[in-house]
Each structure stands twice: as C-alpha cells, then as structure tokens.
C-alpha cells in the first residue's frame, strides 16, 4: 500500500501554492511515497517518554529592548517589488473573505 496517494499530493501542492501539472503530480506522488516510507523509520525509535526538541540548543528568554531602529526607505522597501502603486505593493486581486 502506498503511503501517499496522488490526490493527497495534489492537496499538498494546493496547500503549498504550487501549480503542478498532472505529470508532475504523478512523478512527485511516486517519489514522495518512497521518501515517506523511508522516513517513517523515525517511528522505530521508542521515544514515548522523550521530550521533543524544536531547537538545537536549550536557550530561553532572548529578547530585544523596545527601541526603534531605522526602517528601510520606501525605495529600498519597494525597489524589488514586481509592481508598485502609490508607495504600496501592487498585488493581483485577493480571493479573500468579504471585508
């Protein structure tokens, strides 16, 4: 049985904002299936009572003082943008929630 179906790969592509072709979906389905089967080995390490590590080192409480620093100039901020209008980033229409 495969670990991941083509439909699931299509769902992952949607979640990841990747417009994949049908051929790509087939290709990735096969490869991801093999990879997932292989990485499932992590389950072999009996680790029920082991705390997970999200970080490499156990640092805590790293903060900065609430001080203002120089921002970018509008040119620096907007200079690399694909489209700009009125000092704002111009983006295609947003299929969002009605505001």
């Amino acid at each position: 049985m495969s670990a991941i179906t083509r439909d699931e790969v299509a769902h992952l592509a949607r979640l990841s904002r990747l417009a994949l072709t049908d051929d790509e979906l087939d290709h990735y389905a096969t490869q991801l299936d093999a990879i997932i089967e292989s990485v499932a080995k992590v389950a072999e390490v009996a680790a029920e009572d082991v705390p997970p590590s999200s970080h490499a080192l156990p640092l805590t409480n790293v903060f900065r003082a609430d001080e203002v620093r120089q921002s970018l100039t509008p040119d620096q901020a907007l200079g690399g943008a694909p489209a700009v209008e009125d000092d704002r980033f111009r983006v295609p229409r947003i299929l969002g929630e009605e505001a």
Binding site: E85, D86, D87, R88, F89, R90, V91, P92, R93, I94, G96, E97, E98, A99
Partner: peptide, 11 residues
C-alpha cells in the same frame, strides 16, 4: 470591497 476588485495594493 474585495469582491470584484481588479487588484489590491498593500501597506
């Protein structure tokens, strides 16, 4: 409104 807009600009 967001519906029917041609595009958006972001600050």
């Amino acid at each position: 409104r967001i519906h029917g807009a041609d595009y958006s600009i972001v600050d």
